[in-house]
Structures are given as C-alpha cells and as structure tokens.
C-alpha cells in the first residue's frame, strides 16, 4: 500500500512539473478570451500566452542587477515546490509556507531594483499578503478540523467532501482569490493591465527571461490554487466528486474572470477592511462551528 502511495506521489509530481505550465497557460489564454468577449471584443487566440512567453525568452537580457535573476529563479523554484508538495499528497501547511516563501522571493526581486514603482509594488504585495495569508492558513486549519488531517492524501480520503463542513471557508477563499490571481478588485500590486498608478507594480523592472519565468511561475501557481479548490470538492470515496471538482474549478475560474470585469480596483485600506471583516470573519466562523459540531 505504501508503495502505491509513493508511486502515485511520483506520478503526481512528474505530471505537475510537465503538464502544469500547459494547463496554466491554456487557462490564462481562456481568461483573456473570456475577458475579451465580456468586453465585446474578439480577443487574442487562446494560445497567446505561449506566444508571449516564447517572445519574452527570445529577448535580449537586460537585468537591472544580477541578484534579480537569482531571486526570480528562487520564486519559480518555490512555486514549483509548492505544487509538487501538493500533488505528491503531502502536508498542506507545508505547501502554504512554500507558497509564502515564493511570494517573499518575488517581493525581494522587486525591491532589488532601484525603481520607485517597483518598490511601491513590493510594498503593496506585502500588504496583500497581510490580507490573504490569514485565509490561507485558516484553510489549512479548516481542513484539519474537518478531516483530521493536514496531508492532502488524508484529506482526499476523508469520509465526506470537505465542502460539506467548510462552505463559508470556500466562499471566503473564492473572495480572496483575485488577490492571488492578480485580478480586480484586489490587483493592487500588479495586474495584467499596466493602467495603474504604479505602472506594472511588482513586475515593473522585470523583462525578457525574468518576466517569462514569472509568467510561467504564475501558471504553476494557478494550477496549484485550482488544486486547492478541487480539494474542497473531491473525495476519493465518491468517484463522481472528482468530475464535479474539475467542473467547480473551471466555474470558479470563470467567476474570477467575471469578477475581474465587473469591479473597479479598490485601494489598500478598502482591501484590508474587506478581507479582514468579511472574508476572515466567514472563515473563522466556519472553523469554530466545525470545531464544535464535530
């Protein structure tokens, strides 16, 4: 049995490392296509993110300073590690810590450039972390309280889908997901559109290969985040939840695109207020309820 688990873990990791960029890139392409149709345009082809990244890789390397490349590589590395830990079925809390570490590397990369906009973007990214980190940790706690396990495999093999116990936490997660995905209303540190007062924020001073690595890292991250959504729904004892999980993932992703197109970008104080008052309130309430009801 332990052997099977190990083999599945290896399969998961390898599949993630190889397939996640493609899945993530396609998701990004569909996001752009859906956004365009919501705005009455045709939009770029669905494979556009791949064209963009290949163009970025062909560009001349102009680094602001040598340290930046190392930091961006670390960022990519830690995102991949996050996903690998997750898809190997290991500890969820470890995954989230790895994710946070990756984000810190990105912030350091932004700080390493001597650019006012880059620094402001880094500051805002740290602020964003203050907003979504509590939820992320609450999710890990919530899963533990609901399924008595921090490990992904353990959660998957629980008695019932976690969402039965954690609906409010799920909603809270969907609410703060725009911050992680870089979408309105919480795209204060960087977004896909450069039309904000700090130009491109965190990624202002990244170009060429560095920016390509950040793009690919975001694809890996998107797959990981959708994996967390999937974790809420799927349960190995009921095979149909797996299909439902995938569908819910796609629906949530679509809803994120819709929210992006129907909200203005809010200021940091509003974001802080909303996430702490609404999202965290929902999450904490849910966890406490589950703790007492189980």
């Amino acid at each position: 049995m332990a052997n099977m688990t190990f083999i599945w873990a290896v399969v998961g990791v390898v599949a993630y490392i190889i397939l996640a960029p493609f899945v993530g890139g396609l998701l990004a392409g569909f996001d752009r296509k859906f956004t365009a149709h919501m705005q009455g345009r045709k939009g770029p082809p669905v494979l556009q993110p791949f064209f963009d990244v290949s163009k970025l890789l062909k560009k001349e390397i102009t680094v602001v300073n040598k340290g930046q490349r190392f930091l961006v590589v670390c960022f990519l590395l830690f995102i991949v590690i996050t996903g690998c830990l997750f898809f190997a079925g290991l500890d969820l809390l470890m995954c989230f810590f790895a994710l946070t570490t990756a984000a810190i590397f990105l912030v350091l990369a932004a700080y390493s450039a001597h650019s006012a906009y880059s620094h402001m973007g880094a500051q805002r990214e740290l602020l964003q972390m203050l907003c979504y980190e509590p939820i992320i940790l609450l999710i890990a706690v919530g899963f533990y309280v609901a399924t008595d396990s921090f490990a992904v495999t353990g959660i998957l093999h629980g008695t019932v889908s976690p969402i039965v116990w954690l609906p409010l936490l799920f909603i809270a997660f969907v609410m703060i997901l725009p911050a992680k995905l870089g979408k309105s209303p919480f795209d204060i540190s960087t977004s896909h559109h450069a039309h904000q007062e700090i130009v491109k924020g965190v990624t202002t001073e990244l170009a060429g290969g560095n920016l390509a690595m950040v793009e690919i890292a975001h694809w890996y991250e998107d797959v990981f985040l959708l994996g967390v959504i999937f974790l809420f729904i799927a349960n190995m004892n009921h095979w149909w939840t797996i299909i439902l999980g995938v569908i819910v993932c796609l629906v949530v992703y679509f809803i994120q695109t819709l929210i992006d197109n129907t909200c203005a970008r809010v200021k940091w104080n509003e974001m802080l207020r909303f996430t702490w008052l609404v999202a965290i309130a929902l999450g904490v309430t849910n966890v406490i309820l589950v703790y007492y009801l189980r």
Binding site: M38, Q39, G40, K42, L258, T262
Partner: peptide, 12 residues
C-alpha cells in the same frame, strides 16, 4: 452587461 456581451457577437 458583461454576461450579455459575453453571449453576443463582438462589436469589433
């Protein structure tokens, strides 16, 4: 409006 646009033909 966003959903209406989504299901209509593009104007461009």
């Amino acid at each position: 409006t966003a959903m209406k646009n989504f299901f209509s033909k593009p104007v461009t």
